[in-house]
């Protein structure tokens, strides 16, 4: 029998999950459960929407209202769910490819619209489900099956992208820093507006192997040794920040939320 947290939030009859040994998506999924548990949300009102890819299998395992959609489109489906029923606590679980390549347009427009959706990106810098192709977050010079000579493209910083597009809460955590990650997820989930948490995840099977990153544990320890909190960034030089992953809060503002505004419009016509 699994832990209380797992029993109360996951569909235990669907476990063990399909993720590879050492893939840290499972750590991220547990962190989401923990945040929902800590916040005491009514689970009948939680709706998890996902797209396609390793990350997006999450929806099948979480014991809430769950919707596994098409590649890149989770945020667009979630927008329909949220506007149609604003009482639902709508969250999107997506991957780096799903949300910043094929679904990039939906990401920036949901952020611009500031619709109350919490988007959680399992960012493992690779297309895992299809076998290790480079993604929009694969660092330059890193290898993927479609980057056999090293990635020649500059990657996206999903946090800066979401913040610039208008998201009202943006943060990055890692699957090494689990407790701080849970806190960031909680803050994203209670934000009334478009919130995004970029969760650095690990893919030992493809990204790790292609780039000689070592064991699953070693990949997690990389996060321990190579991350800098947003609060410290200003104090450091460009050289000191080179190749470092910035974690913590990127943005936390309050603005009028889209569905609230729409409900106001409807209210004006009631009579």
């Amino acid at each position: 029998m699994p832990s209380q947290l797992v029993r109360d939030n996951l569909r235990t009859n669907k476990l063990p999950h399909i993720w590879c040994a050492g893939c840290s998506n499972g750590i991220a999924m547990r962190a989401i459960s923990q945040a929902i548990e800590n916040l005491g949300f009514d689970k009948k009102k939680v709706c998890i929407v996902s797209g396609i890819g390793c990350s997006s299998r999450t929806s099948g395992y979480m014991n809430y209202n769950t919707l596994h959609t098409t590649h890149g489109r989770a945020i667009a489906f979630a927008t329909g769910v949220k506007l149609a029923n604003p009482n639902l606590k709508v969250m999107v679980v997506t991957g780096d490819g799903d949300c910043s390549a094929i679904g990039g347009n939906h990401l920036i427009h949901a952020a611009r619209r500031n619709i109350d959706i919490t988007t959680i990106v399992f960012n493992n810098n690779i297309y895992g489900m299809t076998g290790g192709q480079f993604s929009p977050t694969t660092p330059m010079e890193n290898y993927g099956t479609t980057a056999p000579y090293g990635n020649m493209e500059k990657p996206f910083d999903i946090c800066n992208l979401a913040a610039a597009a208008g998201a009202t809460y943006v943060a990055r955590g890692t699957t090494y820093h689990v407790n701080p990650l849970v806190k960031l997820l909680e803050k994203a989930m209670i934000k009334k507006g478009f919130a995004l948490v970029d969760v650095m995840s690990t893919c030992p099977t493809y990204y790790g192997r292609k780039n000689k990153k070592g064991t699953p544990a070693k990949m997690l320890k990389y996060f321990k040794d190579n991350t800098i909190d947003t609060k410290r960034v200003e104090k450091l030089s460009k050289e000191q920040l080179e190749n470092k992953i910035i974690i913590g809060e990127f943005k936390n503002t309050d603005e009028l939320e889209f569905t609230d505004k729409y409900l106001e419009l409807i209210k004006g016509w009631e009579g």
Binding site: P2, S3, S24, G26, R30, T175
Partner: peptide
């Protein structure tokens, strides 16, 4: 161990 087990296979009760 529980915090970082990706498979929920080890935990404290």
């Amino acid at each position: 161990c529980e915090l970082r087990c990706p498979d929920y296979a080890i935990y404290l009760e």
